[in-house]
Amino acid sequence: MKRSTLPIFVLLASTLLFTACDTTSSDEADELYVLRATDVEADPGTRDPQTGQLNSNNTFTLYSLSDNDIVLSSSETDPATRAADSASTSWDIGFKGTTIIFNGGTSGPGQAGAQIIEAAFGSVTEAPTAGYLQDGQNSECPGVVTPAGTFPGAPYAICTGDENGWYDYQPSANLITPIAGRTIVLKTATGAYAKLRILSYYKGAPSTPDPLSDEARYYTFEYVLQDNGSTDLSAN
């Protein structure tokens, strides 16, 4: 397995992006930029080599798109802290393993909801005004096939399970890959429109992840957030 130099580029690229964002936002307030979140932990843990069972906190990482930062990490286990943050509208999107939640409906007090649009991220230039589902509202989710049997899909806005939502699972390689051409369009906790694409589920966002050596349950994603209330999502 060749070691990729990608993480360095990612760092450089994100630095450049944010620098660019800062310098131009004062001049042209309406211009939107693609923001990037790198290696957001989503309840990583260690696997028992004998049973294959994952030992983790079983907690979500909650993320704010407007701050482009983690509000509450899955590594935080203090129940009081977790409860306070979860019940706030300071976060928009949450990650635990392959499950993604939005701050709304059964997941939180915010207005967040989401839908998947079958298009490449770059070609989604306008957020639809309708079609957003909140967590708990989605009755269309197909069953989730697991080695232990098939279970009804949780009614999250973004369905869980192989091919049902944002990812594809290859059992032979034990590999999770985001499905190209599925863009998540969402409303944030405060009702702003955004689009989001997941780039990787593995630490360092390698272009050819190896589940045996690359650590899973780390999200790298890109998004465009429209905070002026319009549906325009065309970004530079």
């Binding site: 991220f121 499905i179 190209a180 780039l199």
Partner: peptide
């Protein structure tokens, strides 16, 4: 136009 791919940076495209 229903087929998508990813580049080496994992970005999707039509």
């Amino acid at each position: 136009g229903r087929v998508f791919g990813r580049d080496l940076n994992n970005r999707d495209m039509k």
